[in-house]
Write a protein that binds this DNA or RNA. Structure first.
Length: 297
DNA sequence: TCTCCTCGAGATCT
DNA sequence: CTCGAGGAGA
């Protein structure tokens, strides 16, 4: 049976819920949840937490006891999943879910919700492992413990759900910092297209040089992502195009150093712009810094 | 240039 | 699961 899960996002959300589950093994088909931990975050700040042990149908084996520090003795007093999961499902709501290799956890929770007739978990989610592979590709491994070591995040109680949530939160903040302070950007296929964005205001300065003008970007910007730049243009009353056309007013040229196909040369959009200009179209090619000057005020 | 495929390789979760 | 490579077809 196919799971109808939410989208796997490549973003750093401000509001989300960190989630981690401990289980009796790695197969959702045969293994059971023994602990759920979650931390609700609002505007980047921890607000609420959920942590409950779950009594499984079968006793857990010694390996899992060793790994997690959760013992059969502790679980003897715990409530079964049918009592715990409804509470967790309410706690989670429709938050974006954040976790490390979070598909693992979602699969267990998703199946549990279906079995117990709870609202399906179709929440969008953010996987810190996937993000880490982009942000720090030089690391040989991207397990949670490797990331904790890399960022010097303490995880004394690794493999207890709530503490793994804590570590993941710290790691996420470091990844966000590294990502935004570098010149890298998500792979092209995840970049926002012009049509995916809209202005966040309806008050515009009609005298602004970008007002009513169409901008197209080429290359990698150093100070912001392309989506952020497009957003600024929209908020100034301008429009964006994914590709160059006769209606384009400005072509903003970022660095081509990191794009494998052109490597310092002219991009297709640049050649096309020069072509149009020769044919008499009124297109202005802007350097990255000229663009920043333009949006500065 | 762009999008949509298929394929195999490799990694992580308990 | 996700990624990159490589091909097909605009």
């Amino acid at each position: 049976m196919k799971r109808n899960k939410g989208k796997n996002l490549l973003t750093f959300p401000d509001d989300f819920c960190l989630v981690d589950v401990e289980t009796t093994g790695i197969d959702p088909e045969y293994d059971e949840i023994i602990e759920i931990g979650a931390i609700r975050v609002r505007n980047g700040v921890q607000r609420d937490r959920f942590r409950m042990l779950v009594k499984p149908a079968e006793p857990i084996d010694e390996f899992i006891e060793q790994l997690t520090g959760i013992t059969n003795e502790m679980l003897a007093e715990a409530l079964p999943l049918k009592s715990v999961l409804p509470v967790f499902r309410t706690f989670l709501g429709d938050d974006i879910i954040v976790g490390h290799n979070i598909n693992f956890d979602i699969n267990f929770l998703y199946d549990g919700c279906i079995a117990l007739n709870l609202p399906e978990i179709s929440n969008d989610f953010v996987d810190t492992m996937r993000i880490a592979r982009f942000v720090i590709p030089e690391l040989e491994h991207h397990r949670l413990k490797d990331l904790c070591k890399h960022y010097q995040v303490e995880n004394q109680h690794a493999h207890r759900a709530i503490y793994d949530c804590e570590s993941t939160f710290e790691v996420l903040n470091h990844l966000k910092q590294d990502f935004s302070s570098s010149v890298m950007d998500w792979p092209a296929r995840y970049k926002k297209k012009a049509k995916d964005l809209q202005a966040q205001t309806d008050i515009f300065d009609v005298t602004h040089p970008l007002y009513g003008k169409q901008c197209v970007f080429t290359g990698t910007l150093s100070r912001m992502t392309r989506a952020e730049a497009m957003q600024i243009v929209l908020n100034l009353g301008g429009t964006n195009g994914d590709n160059l056309s006769k209606k384009t007013d400005y072509l903003v040229v970022g660095s081509t150093e990191y794009s494998a196909n052109v490597k310092g040369g002219k991009t297709g959009k640049m050649k096309k712009a020069e072509d149009y200009i020769l044919k008499g179209c009124d297109i202005t090619i802007l350097s990255e810094s000229a663009f920043y000057d333009m949006i500065a005020e």
